[in-house]
Design a protein around this nucleic acid. Structure first.
Length: 487
RNA sequence: CGGGGCGUAGCGCAGCUCGGUAGCGCGCCUGGUUUGGGUCCAGGAAGUCGGAGGUUCAAAUCCUCUCGCCCCGACCA
């Protein structure tokens, strides 16, 4: 309930982001003792409610595509992690290791899961016997731990809440179809629920998941022009099946290795929607995920007025059943204060209800996405429910459209290395650059070095039909890559 | 891990150059007042001055070491 101004969303995005998360009571910082205990985050009730809404939407889509939820242990034997060569190399630097239990030194160190392919692979090896057992379609909601060096609330934390899906299939085609299907579900969550436009595509060799055959990604673009990898789906090929001996007996009576996939989306998606939709007044939550969709601010002077207004509030509550509603009946705060407070917290619609409105059996409906008076309208009680639904849908669509337009303004194409470099500032984000690419791992590393941390975010699904020249090698190619600096 | 900035009440900061025992704004508590865009008034609570060591009669202030936070890099599904 501070009256301090927020940092500017467009000018000082980093400051704005850190500040709004604390101010809106989405998250807080836990104690840092010992000093190495860094990068953890307390998710407060308002932030958790946002996560629950996201979770509900995503979980429903998982269930609708035949997946079931299960749960696996947090601690994984070190030897499991080491079974897949690329996997251990990728994760070793960020593992937290438990060496003691019950006061005794363990015979083998245990790793706090950085992801669960290994334990789940181990279990699948025991559960899968025949082609009739396939496919296995399981998802886990939980948290994982990766000892990250540079952390940032929601976007990169040491421990994070997420879901990880793990599936096993008889054929490569099925596994690939599953991988792409889950990426599409992530796209729907991002765009239709979080109102976050995302670029969909495949990761380069050097950016793919440790142990995967192919990694697909959804990439969003923050207002400061940095890319944020917002969800990934991996076709693991037979790498984990071989490492954990996940085999099935096929119709032809021979033993075959399964094809497995994994896919994960974390609370980083919340970071994306928090960062993307805000303005200098605070958050703007997309209605479909907003913890509070509508807040009613009652206005009165005398006790009689109070009684009349609060009576009307009860009436409106009934009219608005089905929306996530909060009544701000806090005493001693002026309406103006409450207006600003709820705007800061990102509530899409505010209803102002005072004696004048009660007399006319109307209420003032104010939109978070349209500032000041122009976003207000007086609506009769009878049509209030209908109007609110319509405005919520309109706000949802508007947030997405605005974000899409901004992304379009920050998406460039480069047809030569010089042109590419002219688009890249010395530091900080600048947007997406589309460019023809025929380079290899070494070329990618070279670009990263030469352009100060710019990487290939994805080879987008949206590819050109005309060939062009690779900005690095000069070779003719039909492949386009999208480059950016990432979070 | 490199470069830069900063640690003083819950939050934002002043005081440090030139040592003398801590202050401002917001928030918080109490009472009153106000309530259609961040009410006003009065009273009050709250700080090992990031930590350790040193110099000194005396340290927020000077010296040494150390820890943390933020920003920019490196690292990172």
């Amino acid at each position: 309930m501070s009256v301090q101004k927020l940092p500017s969303h467009s000018q000082d995005f980093s400051d704005w982001y850190n500040e709004i998360i604390m101010r809106a009571e989405l998250a807080d910082t836990p104690p840092r003792v010992p000093e190495q205990l860094r990068g953890f985050m307390v998710l407060r009730p308002y932030g958790y409610a946002l996560w629950e809404n996201l979770q509900a939407a995503l979980d429903a889509m998982f269930k609708a595509t035949g997946h079931k939820n299960a749960y696996f242990p947090v601690l994984i034997p070190m030897s499991f992690i080491a079974k897949e060569k690329d996997h251990v190399e990728g994760f070793k630097p960020e593992l937290a290791v438990v060496t003691h239990g019950g006061g005794e030194e363990l015979t083998e160190p245990l790793v706090v899961r950085p992801t669960s392919e290994t334990v789940i692979g181990h279990m699948y090896a025991q559960w899968i016997r025949t082609y009739r057992d396939l496919p296995v379609l399981i998802n886990q909601w939980g948290s994982v731990l990766r000892w990250e060096k540079r952390t940032r609330a929601f976007m990169r934390t040491a421990e994070f809440l997420w879901q990880e899906g793990h599936t096993a299939h008889a054929t490569e085609e099925e596994a690939e179809a599953e991988t792409l299907q889950m990426l599409e579900i992530y796209r729907i969550l991002a765009e239709d629920w979080a109102a976050v436009p995302v670029l969909t595509g495949r990761k380069s060799e050097s950016e793919k998941f440790a142990g995967a055959l192919r990694t697909y990604t959804i990439e969003s673009l923050m207002p400061d022009g940095r890319a944020l990898q917002s969800g990934t789906s991996h076709n693991l090929g037979q790498n984990f099946a071989r490492a954990f001996d996940i085999q099935y007996q096929d119709r032809d009576n021979t033993l075959k290795y399964c094809w497995t996939t994994s896919w994960g989306l974390s609370w980083r998606m919340l970071g994306a929607l928090i960062g993307l939709h805000g303005d200098d007044k605070g958050l703007k939550f997309p209605p479909k995920l907003a913890p509070i969709q509508v807040v009613i601010v009652p206005i009165y002077r005398s006790d009689e007025e109070r009684a009349a207004v609060m009576g009307a509030v009860d009436h409106l509550k009934t009219a608005l059943s089905g929306v996530r509603l909060e009544v701000d009946d806090r005493e001693g705060l002026t309406p103006g204060f409450k207006f600003n407070d709820w705007e800061m917290r990102g509530v899409p619609i505010r209803i102002e209800l005072g004696p004048r409105d009660v007399a006319g059996r109307v209420a003032v409906v104010a939109r978070r996405d349209i500032p000041d008076k122009s976003g207000k309208e007086s609506v009769g009680w009878d049509s209030l429910g209908e109007t609110v639904q319509a405005r919520l849908a309109d706000i949802q669509a508007g947030l997405f459209r605005t974000a899409q337009e901004r992304r379009a303004r920050m998406t460039f194409t480069a047809s030569s290395w010089d042109e590419f470099m002219s688009l890249v500032p010395e530091s900080g984000g600048f947007g997406f650059i589309r460019a023809y690419w025929a380079g290899d791992d070494a070329d990618e590393a070279w670009v990263k070095q030469a352009a100060g941390g710019v990487t290939i975010r994805a080879f987008p699904f949206d590819q050109p039909t005309e060939p062009g020249r690779c900005i690095r090698t000069g070779k003719e190619t039909t492949q386009v890559a999208v480059f950016a600096r990432a979070y």
